[in-house]
Design a protein around this nucleic acid. Structure first.
Lengths: 236, 236
DNA sequence: CAGGTAGTTTGCGATAGCGCAAAACGGGCC
DNA sequence: GGCCCGTTTTGCGCTATCGCAAACTACCTG
C-alpha cells in the first residue's frame, strides 16, 4: 500500500490534536486513488464502503430525487472529507460524488471508522466540528431559499464558491473548477435559464466575465451589494 | 443541585454506550429548569453558555435574518439535545430557542463539554450521529424546497411533525403542541396566507381538521399521496 | 359577559420565475 | 478546416405564489 506523506495532511482540521505517530497509524489504513474529471466516486444509494479525504481537485456532491431532479449539496475542496455516511449511521451514500476536475483522494474503509475514533477520539470531535459547521451552512442555505429571491441567492452562491475555491486574478476572482449554469441552478433552487439570464445581466454590467463552465467575478464588491440588498431591490 | 434520575434518560441515543456510573457523573454536572410556554430559552446571537437536553415539552428553534424574517429550523422533541453551539465551534447561538409548551430541560454549561467528551468519547460519537442525521434532514429539506411546490412541502412538513410528535386519536393524528399557520409557513418557505389556503382546501376535503394552533391529520394516508405526487399533480 | 387581541380566512391584483422551444455559440475532434 | 455536440442564450406565454387589505373568529382578560 502506497504510503502517504503525513506532512501533506497534518495541518488539516480533521487531524487537529492528533500526534504525528497517531496520524501515521491513521494514514496507514488509507489508500489513495485518482479520479479523472467527470468520473463518479460513489453513487447515491450505493453501499457506503469507504469514506474520503480530498487531496487535490474538486468534487461535487449531489442529491437526486426519485423523479430525477438534482440539487448540488456542496462542492468539496481539497482538505475536506466526504462520503461520511457512517457519521450519520447510514449504510448507503445519501448523495452522489463526482470529480469535476482530475482529483486525488485518500480512501478509508468505512469499517475502520469505529476503531479509528475509538483509538483517536479527537477524530470524532474534529468530525463533529466539521459536520456541525456544514449543518450550520445548510440552515443558512434554507434561510436564503426561504427569504431571498433568485438573484440574491445566485450572488451568495458565487461569492461562497469564490471564497472557497477562488483563484485571484488581477482582473477579478475566478472559480477554479468547471461549473455550468445548470450547476449553479442546482445550488440555488432555480433553473439554468434563470441563472443564464442573471449572469447575462451581470456580464453586461461588467460584474462578471463568464463563459462555458467558467466564471470570473470582476467586481466581487458589487456582487456583495447585490447579495445583501433587501427584497425591494432598492429600485427607487 | 437537584439530582436527576438516571433511569429517565439512560435509554436516550445521546447516552448509548455510556455506563450507569458515567451517566451518573455526567448528570451531576447538569441542572434542570422549567420554561413556561412561550418563554425564550436562548436568543440567536447570545453567548452560548449552555447546552440543553429536552425532557418534557416542545421547543422551537428558529433563525432570524437581519431584516427580521424567520424560519423554523426544527421542533425539538423530548429526548433531543439543542443549543449545541460548541459542536460547531461557535461561541454564540445560531438560532433562537423558545418553549412552545411548558417544558423541562437539563442544562449543562458549555464549558463542561470538552471535559465530558474527553472523559466519555461515546458522547462525541453519539452527538456526531445526531448532528449527522440533522444534516441529512437539512439536505432533504433543501431538496424539497428546490423541487417541490408549496402544497407538497406543507404535506411533508405536517407528516414529519405527526411522526415526530403526533398523538394518535381514533379520528386521526393530532400534532400535540401548538403550531400556527405562520409556523408552518416558516418551516416550508412560504407565507401564512398560502398555508391557510392550503389547509382550508384540505379541510373541505376532509383531510385535516384544524383550528387555532391546532392540527389533526384525519387522512394521513391521503396526505402522503399529496406529498409524493410529482409536479404535474396527476390532474389527468 | 363585553372587549380586545392574536390568529385565521379570503379576495384580488401583481409578478417573479418557470417551462417550452428554438436559435446561437464555442470547442474539441477527426 | 469543417462538423458535431453540449452549453448557453433568448423570446414568450403562463401560473403558482406572493403581497396587501379587510373581514372574521376564537380565545383570554378584566
Amino acid at each position: 500500500m502506497a504510503k502517504v506523506d503525513t506532512s501533506l495532511v497534518a495541518h488539516l482540521p480533521l487531524f487537529a490534536g492528533v500526534t504525528p505517530e497517531a496520524l501515521d497509524e491513521i494514514l496507514r489504513e488509507a489508500r489513495s486513488a485518482r479520479y479523472p474529471k467527470n468520473s463518479a466516486i460513489f453513487e447515491q444509494g450505493a453501499d457506503a464502503q469507504s469514506f474520503f479525504l480530498l487531496l487535490h481537485g474538486h468534487v461535487r456532491a449531489a442529491k437526486t430525487t426519485p423523479t430525477g431532479e438534482q440539487i448540488v449539496v456542496r462542492y468539496v475542496a481539497p482538505g475536506e472529507t466526504f462520503g461520511l455516511a457512517m457519521a450519520i449511521g447510514a449504510t448507503r451514500y445519501p448523495a452522489t460524488a463526482m470529480a469535476v476536475d482530475d482529483s486525488v483522494v485518500l480512501i478509508w474503509p468505512t469499517s475502520a471508522w469505529p476503531r479509528l475514533i475509538d483509538r483517536f477520539p479527537a477524530l470524532a470531535a474534529n468530525t463533529l466540528q466539521t459536520v456541525g459547521t456544514r449543518l450550520q451552512e445548510s440552515h443558512t442555505r434554507i434561510l436564503e431559499m426561504s427569504t431571498q429571491q433568485v438573484e440574491q441567492r445566485v450572488a451568495h452562491a458565487l461569492l461562497r464558491l469564490a471564497k472557497q475555491s477562488g483563484k485571484k486574478l488581477d482582473h477579478g476572482i475566478e472559480i477554479d473548477f468547471p461549473i455550468s449554469r445548470q450547476d449553479i441552478a442546482q445550488m440555488t433552487g432555480t433553473t439554468l435559464h434563470t441563472v443564464s439570464r442573471i449572469l447575462s445581466g451581470w456580464e453586461s454590467q461588467g460584474l462578471v466575465e463568464s463563459g462555458r463552465q467558467r466564471i470570473i467575478l470582476r467586481e466581487p464588491h458589487k456582487i456583495v451589494v447585490l447579495a445583501e440588498r433587501s427584497a425591494d431591490g432598492g429600485a427607487t
